[in-house]
């Protein structure tokens, strides 16, 4: 599997990565993996994606051109922009052991490759849904936590499609406990899971 992005700022909880220009755009709530040190693999959820100019002193302006025209006549414009993603790490695995729903002991190194997470690994991370707690309480997670939860639960539903139909029910129960029975908020989240 090829790297989709590269770590450019790092901590034991969150990292920021620049997405390679020829990679697919990362989706909110998507699972990714990174190796902080040899033998450890950390798993995280894309919590925020933004497209910004490389050079902070240059701002993008409306150009009134079609995407094709932009590429043919202003070829530098897209080269001056980059996609950045913030990833909330929620789990890791040491050696060939089981996935533990806790932060990795070390931060990923700057310039480490970030890879997509195989569906099989995402399935393994599901229960007992402790990672939902990290997403909820993490101060690093930007606003719209609920929308992030919707995206994560929708993703879970997709990877378990045709198999574990109970997974979304159990995740909903876990979330209900975390939200301390704030049913209105819970309903709002579950209603939007698709």
């Amino acid at each position: 599997m090829e790297a989709m992005a590269e770590v450019i700022a790092s901590s034991t909880a969150v990292f920021t990565a620049e997405v390679y220009s020829d990679s697919r755009l990362p989706a909110l709530g998507q699972w990714v993996r990174v190796k902080p040190v040899e033998g450890i693999e950390a798993y995280g959820i894309v919590s925020y994606v933004e497209m910004v100019p490389f050079d902070e002193s240059r701002s993008a302006v409306a150009l009134g051109r079609s995407p094709d025209e932009l590429q043919r006549e202003l070829p530098q414009v897209m080269e001056l922009l980059r996609t950045m993603m913030r990833v909330q790490m929620v789990a890791h695995r040491e050696g060939g052991g089981a996935v533990r729903q806790t932060l990795p002991p070390y931060p990923p190194r700057i310039h480490s490759p970030v890879l997509e997470c195989p569906t099989e690994t995402i399935r393994q991370i599901a229960r007992p849904f402790d990672f939902l707690r990290v997403l909820l309480i993490s101060a690093e997670t930007p606003a719209f936590t609920d929308d992030l939860l919707v995206a994560v639960l929708s993703g879970l539903q997709r990877v378990h499609e045709g198999g574990d139909s109970q997974v979304i029910v159990e995740a909903g129960k876990a979330l209900s406990r975390l939200l301390r029975d704030d049913t209105e908020r819970l309903q709002s989240i579950l209603r939007r899971v698709a």
Partner: peptide, 10 residues
């Protein structure tokens, strides 16, 4: 270097 009118990389 720009290759105008093409999709070639600058």
């Amino acid at each position: 270097a720009f290759q105008y009118g093409t999709l070639e990389k600058p």
